[in-house]
Nucleic acid binder design. Structure first.
Lengths: 202, 202
DNA sequence: CGTTGAGTTGAGCTCTGTCAATAGCTGTGG
DNA sequence: CCACAGCTATTGACAGAGCTCAACTCAACG
């Protein structure tokens, strides 16, 4: 199968909304964000992908153009698979098709949750859920945010200012301790209540 | 292939969030809505499906449980395909797998747009886009809403009250004429500007 | 140092959700 | 045939979450 390797510097666009989807990518190294922009320039992040993650496949199967923008957050190496060759391969390998179906299905799940968050939950609840889902949130040690807080805001569908304020409130109320990118979870049950929408941060 | 036919009265649940996804459905007749509920009971509609549409497939491929609720809006006849048989069939028929991939990809596209709407656009913009996308919005004849306005509110991520008010404003400003479920588009360019986020409904 | 970017904080404002009351329509049953 | 219940839709009053604009701090870096 023909695949082309591709290097992109931090901050560079991989593709933009509306571009023709001539194939899809796999992250070998680095980090890529997929996002939408509003007319005023606010940003909603749809995905953050790292090594091993494929992206842009939906454009290959559905229509022809990418529905969002892709930018490298760090210097990255990508593998590009041209459309035709990939469709061909999938046709020949049923297990590959099933794997692809599983990937897309999981992505639909995550989107459904994001929609639920944006429409039916408030920012403190989303943030609480996000913190609890962070790798390492189970241990007593502080969690370390892997991305700048502004990106987290974009992920949660809010602004850096609001994120900062809510984090402040959480720490005022003793739910967490914030030290730059290090966040220690102090009151897990309270965070869980927040995430479930059973509590306010009044 | 083993498929079971299934009749459900209006208002009846087909499945609920968290139920085990033992298979998927196809609508033969009627209408089914897929939705999420907030802790306070507000509702966000994810899909509205009619005759010919499959639903619940993602649960078959990804995890095991349905990520949302499904309720029949009208008396409906459904076809149920058990998981194992379907996976088997897809494995044997590559074209079927590709078709399924296309379905899921289109669904991802639509979800991405919904996320964009909820996060980056205001309700008037969403409503304008919705009206313009309605079948028959191209003609001079009035469009007829197929579902109650409360359902449209749930689809757009807002409440019936807000929807009503915005429709009122639009009609006050001469963008549309509203007569119950019949809506005539009077000022298409203005609606397009609204949908693009270039205008306010001040 | 000056500059740049990340993060925080304050003040103000607007959108939109909530609660409540009302009106119109439909179907049911006494 | 009428009263009443129930649903859809509309409108008003109100409150609050969160966005915007702006200033300021701090750390990293050339």
């Amino acid at each position: 199968m023909i695949a082309v390797e591709h290097s992109v510097p931090a901050g560079a666009a991989v593709f933009s909304e509306g571009d023709e989807g001539t194939g899809f990518y796999v992250v070998l190294e680095g980090r890529v964000k997929i996002f939408k922009l509003s007319a005023e320039g606010r940003e909603q992040i749809l995905h953050l992908f790292g090594p091993g993650d494929p992206f842009g496949e939906a454009a290959v199967f559905a229509g022809r153009h990418f529905p969002a923008n892709a930018v490298a957050l760090a210097p990255s190496r990508l593998l590009f698979f041209p459309r035709a060759a990939f469709v061909d391969l999938v046709t020949r390998r049923p297990s590959l098709a099933l794997g692809m179906l599983a990937v897309l299905s999981r992505r639909l799940h995550r989107f459904a949750r994001l929609i639920e968050d944006l429409s039916l939950r408030e920012v403190p609840g989303r943030l609480a859920a996000y913190l609890l889902a962070l790798p390492g949130a189970g241990s007593a040690a502080p969690v370390v945010l892997e991305i700048p807080k502004a990106q987290i805001a974009g992920l949660l569908g809010t602004t850096p200012e609001t994120l900062s304020r809510i984090l402040r409130k959480m720490s005022d109320r003793g739910l967490v301790r914030v030290d730059g990118p290090r966040i220690r979870i102090l009151d897990r049950p309270a965070l869980e209540d927040l995430a479930a929408g059973e509590t306010r941060l009044a």
